[in-house]
Design a binder for these strands. Structure first.
Length: 593
RNA sequence: GACCCGGUAGCUCAGCUGGAUAGAGCAACAGUUUUCUAAACUGUCGGUCACUGGUUCGAAUCCAGUCCGGGUCACCA
């Protein structure tokens, strides 16, 4: 049981004994005491006053006295207005630190025998990944780490939108102009190579519009009349008919794209255990539609299309099968969800998908529930907002700034530049230095994105580079590296990190222990809220507090041997938690920087 | 038109299951290194928490309405 819970229960107990009042732990509000007041935890007495039949201030006073007398862990307290500020004993905190440092799996919960299917990334195969995918992947990967830490068995999944008119457009341009070039022959990364042909398609399309005799004013309408556009449509039909040559080219070009994606995944450190392809699922869903018709959950409209009425749930009528009998996006997704359940029997099915699709996932979950799928209760759409430039939404046409690979190499370049400037790589081999740039550069990028609450949009200004100072990934990494340096030195002087008793803790020291003590709650909260930013903000606060301590208190030259041992242990444990928290964010920490 | 999400310091963000004088970072300015890594630390400056009303002992937080920004309401994905 965690400390807050203990204090709450103590309060309930005391209310029973002292005031003969039955209250529940829910009625007790407990916070970490604000910095400007003395104390570790604060119990808010206002809502309790009526149960005690006293004024809030008197209630707080009485409660404080009883807490001090009965719990054995409250050293002293003060009351300001209706706030009861409790200070726990140094002994309590020292024991807490001992407990945490003894427990190697602190912050990791035991397996709960629940399975999670986590879908993220979901790229189209006609162009390279962009900054939006980066946010998606970082969120997805971090969430999987967090859920694993909270005891879930997680399977990461990707789904490739590998068919349709877009990829055919790349193919048409390739056929017309490439002369058999390949990524290898041209020295271009596969996904960019294919993306370039997609761009070429659009360029040619625009050119051809000017040659049309009577082009409509509407650009999109005009596009459809161009020869190249018609070629792409024709190619799609050939693809659907299973034309051998078309399929071969399609496979070849997709393969190039996958090779390119793999590189990016590897660089970012994300992975998947299971891949799905739209080309294999796009016809699925007929069975589900039949089932829905049978159950009268769905109905056939006069025009032949099958639909479901969601107006009672505040949504609209939703078509699930075209009049010509072909399946649509939502139907494929419903079928794919079923497919996943059949294979994994997961308790949770999480989709990391941009908030443009909020409506889609509401429908998805609702329809499955209407079909009586109990497991649909476990569907969660981890919706995130777009990454935007200061002038608005990133358009792929706006050029390189939104491209994932460019973004990554830019941040690696900056990491290298700054590291060299600071002269931090003395004694590093070339290989070690490169690894360090990667650790820091990616740390900066990942932290920059993950520290923002998913549902809030991120404003990213490509003109200003990502920061390495202040509230950033490198700040946390630096704190870690500094601790490690101390520990390395201490290693020669002490055996183990034993924690002496009977010390007087400085304010910063107990603040650090309190924060370390909160870590397991933060992991739980991040999992419950599906929000890695909880952890990102936590680890920053911890690092910041530690830096203050580091500056104010000598560790290896502490006043006494027991002080020294304690501070080494405190530092070590802080580094352990920083590393764990960063790992849940998918961020590495360097031993030296 | 209906619905969903945002609006907190010049900028980027915390705080939002109601609690004390609204917090960080960046930027600006002033300091800190004979001591464990200065990618650090300390201080100054900076706020009608979009607006109006309501509920409450207490509202950035909850409710209603308004304004601004974005998104969705496809037999596209």
């Amino acid at each position: 049981m965690n400390l807050e819970e203990t204090l709450k229960q103590a309060t309930v107990q005391i209310f029973k004994e002292e005031f003969d009042a039955d209250i529940t732990t829910d009625a007790v509000t407990i916070n970490i005491t604000k910095k400007e007041h003395e104390g570790d935890f604060t119990i808010v007495a206002f809502p309790l006053a009526k149960f005690a039949k006293m004024l809030p201030e008197q209630t707080a006073q009485k409660l404080g006295e009883a807490m001090q007398a009965k719990t054995g862990i409250v050293d002293r307290f003060n009351v300001i207005k209706g706030f009861l500020n409790l200070s726990l004993t140094d002994t309590y905190w020292l024991n807490r630190l001992k407990e945490i440092s003894k427990n190697n799996s602190y912050g990791t919960f035991s397996p709960n025998s629940q399975k999670v299917a986590l879908e993220y990334c979901g790229p189209n195969t006609n162009k390279p990944l962009h900054i939006g995918h980066v946010r998606n992947m970082l969120l997805g990967f971090s969430m999987s780490e967090i859920l694993k830490a909270t005891g879930y068995n997680v399977t990461k999944m990707n789904i490739y939108n590998d068919r349709g008119v877009a990829i055919c457009q790349s193919m048409v341009a390739y056929l017309r102009y490439a002369n058999g070039a390949t990524p290898k022959s041209s020295g271009i990364k596969g996904d960019h190579f294919v993306g370039d042909w997609y761009v070429k398609f659009n360029t040619v399309c625009m050119e051809e519009i000017t040659t049309l005799s009577n082009a409509p004013a509407d650009k999109d309408e005009a596009k459809k009349l161009t020869p190249i556009y018609k070629d792409a449509q024709a190619l799609l039909l050939k693809w659907e008919a299973g034309d051998k040559e078309t399929i071969e080219l399609w496979k070849k070009m997709n393969e190039w794209v996958y090779e390119g994606f793999q590189e990016t995944y590897k660089l970012l450190g994300v992975d998947f255990q299971k891949d799905y392809y739209e080309s294999e699922t796009y016809k699925l869903g007929k069975n589900i539609v039949d089932e829905g018709l049978q159950k009268k959950t769905f109905y056939k409209r006069a025009d032949g299309a099958v639909a479901v009425d969601l107006t009672p749930d505040g949504l609209d009528e939703k078509v699930l099968l075209r009049a010509d009998g072909t399946s649509i996006y939502i139907t494929q997704d419903i079928a794919t969800a079923q497919l996943r359940y059949d294979e994994f029997e997961m308790n949770k099915l999480i989709y990391v998908v941009a908030n443009e699709q909020d409506y889609h996932f509401k429908v998805l979950k609702l329809v499955l529930q209407k079909l009586g799928r109990k497991w649909a209760e476990g569907i969660y759409h981890l919706s995130y907002a777009l990454v935007e430039s200061p002038t608005g939404r990133f358009k792929s046409r706006e050029g390189k700034t939104a491209d994932a690979d460019d973004l990554i190499s830019e941040v690696l370049r900056i990491a290298e530049e700054k590291t060299k400037e600071l002269g931090k790589i003395e004694g590093f081999t070339e290989e070690e230095a490169t690894k360090l740039y990667k650790t820091i550069g990616l740390g900066a990028l990942k932290y920059f994105i993950l520290r923002v609450n998913p549902y809030k949009k991120i404003i990213f200004n490509p003109e200003e580079s990502i920061d390495f100072h202040g509230h950033t990934g490198p700040f946390v990494q630096y704190t870690y590296a500094r601790i490690r340096a101390v520990i390395r030195k201490a290693g020669e002087q002490t055996n183990g990190f034993e924690i002496p008793s009977g010390l007087n803790l400085a304010a910063v020291e107990r603040e650090i222990i309190i924060q370390l003590s909160e870590y397991e709650n933060v992991v739980k909260t991040a999992a419950d809220k599906y929000d890695p930013s909880e952890l990102a903000n936590y680890v920053y606060t911890l690092a910041k507090t530690y830096n203050k301590f580091y500056h104010e208190h000598p560790i290896l030259n502490a006043e006494s041997e027991s002080e020294k041992k304690f501070r080494i242990a405190l530092s070590n444990e802080t580094s352990v938690i920083i590393k764990k928290a960063m790992k849940l964010l998918g961020i590495d920490v360097p031993e030296k920087m």
